[in-house]
Structure formats: structure tokens, C-alpha cells
């Protein structure tokens, strides 16, 4: 392109690039870097920040409340990840081959994904309500005396896990469906010629070739699980008796309730470091179980 030289070209590049680049630098990159500095200060926004060094990190890492929040976050993840992944794999496999109304059902399973977290949390709070809740009523019909769900410290986290699995299953299902559709037909044909049963095809063709998509879904789900917040905030606000306190809820409370900007920033960096660590570990560990076609 002959005319695109000198200042005219610079202007053109700037025109196209800056509307996205400036907000990216100002509202994403800068706060991220600034957050490192904020995490090393004592700052309540009322008085000027005071430099502390790594004190906030020491404080956070030795804080019993943070430990509890971290443990609860892990509890949430350990409950949520297998349920949402196994559920999504099952539904995706069942929906994949020809079925009347498959598109319709795919839409149904996906509805909670497009619904806001606040609505899902409120809806499940009502469904799981120990007073007039539908779930306990249905359990009662089969002779089970339902627990107090989100009002009971032992059942509050399972309540949040149930709501989260319900909301996110459709998203994972869709990622896995895309993976299933990329498995070439000739592999199934070859397996049929070799006399494989449907179960054997699932076990030796479908599942191994689906592992890259499972890994992808798993990493996304894990990153999301570490940052669990909306549903906790709406359903329990971390209660009862701290039974569902999680890391992001602590970040928000520290920063915006107690005015501890430095500690809150340090917490989010610790969380980010843990997420990175787990992601790297998963990518390392994948060679043991992820199967790449070629």
C-alpha cells in the first residue's frame, strides 16, 4: 500500500488501535501494576498511603481468617469441579449423537449460563430454603428430612456448590460438545469394523480424544472456582458463622468495609499466585492423561 507511509500511517494505526489500547493500559494494565505497590502500603484512602514493604503479605499469610477463606475456597473447588465436569461430559456425550430435540435441550441446559449470578443465587436460596423450599419438600416426599441448607454451617457450602454446578454445567457442556464434534467419524467406523461395542467406543475413542477439551474446561472452571464471589455474597455473605467465607469475599470486605486497601491487594495477589501455580501444575501434569490426536 503505497500511500501508507510516514505520519499518515502513524495516524491511521493510532486511530484504529488506540480506542482499545488506551482503556486497556489505563483501566487494566495500570491498576494491575499499581496493585503491586498498593499491596505494600497501609492505605485507608482517608490518609496518605504509608509504605510497609512485605508486611501485608506476612499479615495475610499468617492470618487465620485468610486461611479459613482459602480452605473454604478449596472446599468449594473440590466439590464443584468434579460435579460440573463429570455432569457436563455425561450430558455432552448423550447429546452428541443424533437425537430428536437435541438443539432444544442444548438451549435448556445453557439457560442458567446466560442468567445473572444474582438471579441464580436468589433462586437457589429460595429452592433450598428450609422454610417453604421446594427441594426439602421433594426430599420430604421420599421420606428424607432435608437439612437447613444455607442456614446450617455444615450445609451452606454444599448449597453454594449445587447452585454453581447448576449454573455452569451448560457452559462446560458446550466446550465439550465442540470437542466431540471434532472427533473424526472414520475412527468410529474403524472401531465398528473391529467389532467394538458402544461402551468400548466411548472408553477407547471418545473419552481419550476428548481429553484436550476436558483439560481446557477444567482449567477455566478451576480459575473461576478460585474467584468464587457473586453466589457467596448473595446467598450467605460468607456465613453462617464464617462457614462460606472465601478469598474474594475477604478481599471485598477488607477493602470496602474495613478500608484496608493494602491488605486486600496483597490478598488478591496471593490468590493470583495460587491460581497461576495450579494452572502451571495442571499444564505440567496434563502429559499423563491428555491425548492429542496427532
Amino acid at each position: 500500500m503505497v500511500g501508507d507511509r510516514g505520519w499518515k500511517k502513524v495516524g491511521l494505526v493510532a486511530l484504529f488501535l488506540l480506542p482499545a489500547l488506551i482503556p486497556l493500559l489505563v483501566f487494566r494494565i495500570f491498576p494491575m501494576l499499581a496493585s503491586l505497590w498498593v499491596s505494600m502500603t497501609k492505605w485507608n484512602l482517608l490518609r496518605p498511603p504509608e509504605y510497609l514493604g512485605i508486611e501485608n503479605y506476612v499479615e495475610v499469610l499468617t492470618d487465620a481468617k485468610f486461611h479459613k477463606a482459602l480452605l473454604n475456597t478449596l472446599y468449594y473447588m473440590v466439590g464443584y469441579l468434579p460435579l460440573v465436569l463429570v455432569g457436563a461430559i455425561a450430558i455432552a456425550v448423550l447429546l452428541n449423537s443424533k437425537l430428536k430435540g437435541a438443539t432444544f435441550f442444548r438451549g435448556i441446559y445453557f439457560l442458567p449460563v446466560v442468567t445473572s449470578w444474582v438471579v441464580v443465587a436468589l433462586l437457589w436460596k429460595w429452592l433450598l430454603s428450609p422454610q417453604g423450599g421446594m427441594v426439602n419438600y421433594v426430599l420430604g416426599l421420599v421420606g428424607i428430612d432435608g437439612p437447613g441448607w444455607w442456614t446450617d454451617p455444615n450445609w451452606a457450602m454444599p448449597s453454594i456448590i449445587i447452585a454453581s454446578v447448576w449454573k455452569d454445567l451448560g457452559f462446560n457442556m458446550l466446550i465439550l460438545l465442540a470437542g466431540l464434534q471434532s472427533i473424526p467419524d472414520h475412527l468410529y467406523e474403524a472401531a465398528t469394523i473391529d467389532g467394538a461395542t458402544r461402551w468400548e467406543k466411548l472408553r477407547y475413542v471418545t473419552l481419550p480424544l476428548l481429553t484436550p477439551s476436558i483439560l481446557f474446561a477444567m482449567i477455566l472452571a478451576m480459575i473461576g472456582a478460585f474467584q468464587v464471589f457473586d453466589q457467596v455474597w448473595v446467598m450467605t455473605e460468607g456465613g453462617p458463622a464464617g462457614a462460606t467465607t472465601v478469598v474474594m469475599e475477604q478481599v471485598v470486605k477488607n477493602a470496602f468495609k474495613y478500608g484496608l486497601m493494602g491488605e486486600a491487594s496483597a490478598m488478591s495477589w496471593v490468590l493470583f499466585a495460587i491460581i497461576l501455580l495450579f494452572t502451571v501444575f495442571q499444564l505440567r501434569f496434563q502429559k499423563r492423561w491428555v491425548h492429542y490426536g496427532d
Binding site: 486497556l24 489505563v26 483501566f27 487494566r28 494494565i29 495500570f30 491498576p31 494491575m32 499499581a34 496493585s35 498498593v38 484512602l45 480459575i223 478460585f226 474467584q227 464471589f229 474474594m248 478481599v251 471485598v252 477493602a255 470496602f256 486497601m261 486486600a264 491487594s265 488478591s268 495477589w269 490468590l271 493470583f272 491460581i275
Partner: peptide, 17 residues
Amino acid sequence: ATLMVPFQVMVVPLFIE
């Protein structure tokens, strides 16, 4: 790269900004 960094990490400084 910013796609990889959770919004949560920058939420406090973004608020201050």
C-alpha cells in the same frame, strides 16, 4: 495477557483510580 489476569487482581486499585 490481560485475558489471563483475573479482574479480581485489579479491582482494588481500579476502585482507587
